[in-house]
Amino acid sequence: MPFDCERLKALLTGLSLVKDCQRLKDGTIRMATNLRYPNGSFVDIFVHAQGDLGNAGPGLFKGHVLSDMGQTALYLLQLGMEVWATEKRKLAVEDVCKILGVESKRSQLQVKLISDEEGQVADAFLRLAQACIRIADLSYMQRFAAPGMFKEEVAEFLTEAHFRFEPDIVLAGKYDTDVPVDFRVKSRKTSLLRLISGKTTSATHVTANEVFRCWHDLSGFQKANRFITLVDARDRMGLVRGDDAARLAEMSEIVFFPTQERQLASLLAA
Rank of each mutant, 00 (worst) to 15 (best):
F125E: 01
R213V: 11
V93T: 08
A265L: 01
V240D: 04
F183T: 04
L218D: 01
K151F: 08
M251P: 00
T190W: 11
L158K: 11
N39P: 03
S191T: 12
A246Q: 14
A73Y: 12
R36Q: 12
R164Q: 13
G70P: 11
F221M: 05
L24Y: 08
P58N: 02
Q78E: 13
L79H: 13
E117P: 04
N209K: 15
L15Q: 12
K105N: 11
L193S: 04
H216G: 08
K98R: 15
A85E: 07
P180N: 05
I135P: 03
A145Y: 03
M69S: 12
D68C: 08
G59L: 05
V96D: 05
Q71G: 04
I99K: 14
F3N: 02
L268W: 10
L239G: 02
Q78G: 15
F212C: 07
E160M: 09
R134L: 10
V121M: 08
V185R: 01
I228M: 01
P180E: 05
L267A: 10
E117N: 04
S107F: 13
M81Y: 12
E153V: 02
E152F: 08
V18K: 01
G242K: 07
E250L: 11
T28G: 00
L24E: 15
A145L: 01
R127F: 09
A146G: 06
V43S: 06
K88E: 13
D68A: 07
I99G: 00
Q263K: 14
D243I: 10
